[in-house]
């Protein structure tokens, strides 16, 4: 059988570049495909290579052309880009994706995004559509219309089976996301992007964002190993 797959990916500020100054958080930094969503894309592509079919991407939120092109260059056939006019929380995002998600055999999400990181949108979409929800998947195969997956639920590992269509979320260990070749990057410009602007209400609200840090002494201990060791032993004795 061939598979029609929908992969959701989120475009997020690169968390390693977020700037903190005083009590202000500057999120106006370069964006990227959220880390584990790259694993979701990769999983979709590997399943297409194995079983045939199509892999369509869907992204709700920031409509960054360059990042969408990166996802297309990895190998997605097409991307649906949805931009809500106001803040969309996890449930609102799930509703928007659900509207576009009918008719697919498999919906793939990353285990968590690197911004909010609620790990919620995938399971919510599954519930809205009434599909089986299989999260934290690290290995997956398709057998006669059924999906068999291994979930990593540290400290448990669980093998499950469910009838397609279903929703899965994949972990970072599921695969190694490919890096597009120059040719793929060039060709990605010709692929289709369906862009939509929508209105949706959210039932939660971000009240504020503040930098989170615990003040530290930041003392550097250099010098001879014996002296360094002596110093740390003293520090430990004073704190244990």
């Amino acid at each position: 059988m061939t598979l029609n797959i929908l992969v959701a990916f989120k475009i997020v500020p690169d968390e390693t570049l977020i700037k903190i100054s005083g009590d202000k958080v500057d999120l106006n930094v370069p964006v990227k495909i959220s880390t584990y969503d790259k694993n979701a894309i990769e999983e979709g592509l590997e399943l297409r290579e194995k079983y045939g079919g199509k892999v369509i991407g869907i992204s709700v939120g920031v409509n960054d052309r360059k990042t969408i092109r990166e996802a297309l260059a990895m190998g997605l056939d097409e991307v649906i880009s949805i931009t809500p006019k106001t803040y969309a929380d996890a449930l609102a995002t799930a509703k928007l994706i659900s509207e576009e998600a009918k008719g697919y055999d498999l919906l793939i999400f990353g285990e968590s995004s690197t911004d909010g990181g609620d790990s919620a949108v995938g399971p919510m979409v599954g519930e809205i559509l009434g599909y089986p929800v299989i999260t934290y998947v690290r290995r997956v195969e398709i057998q006669d219309g059924f999906l068999v997956a291994e979930r990593n639920l540290t400290p448990e590992v669980e093998e499950v089976k469910a009838k397609l269509p279903c929703v899965i979320s994949v972990t970072g260990e599921a695969n190694t996301p490919r890096i597009p070749t120059l040719k793929q990057i060039m060709e990605s410009g010709k692929k289709k992007v369906v862009a939509k602007e929508v209105e949706i209400a959210s039932s939660s609200r971000l009240v504020n964002l503040t930098p989170y840090f615990v003040p530290r002494k930041k003392v550097i201990i250099e010098g001879k190993l014996e002296e360094q060791v002596q110093k740390v032993v003293e520090i430990l004795r004073g704190n244990l």
Partner: peptide, 13 residues
């Protein structure tokens, strides 16, 4: 949020 760099206050109905 954001890998632990940011503390967010969220209000839920």
């Amino acid at each position: 949020g954001f890998g632990g760099v940011v503390k967010a206050t969220v209000e839920l109905s």
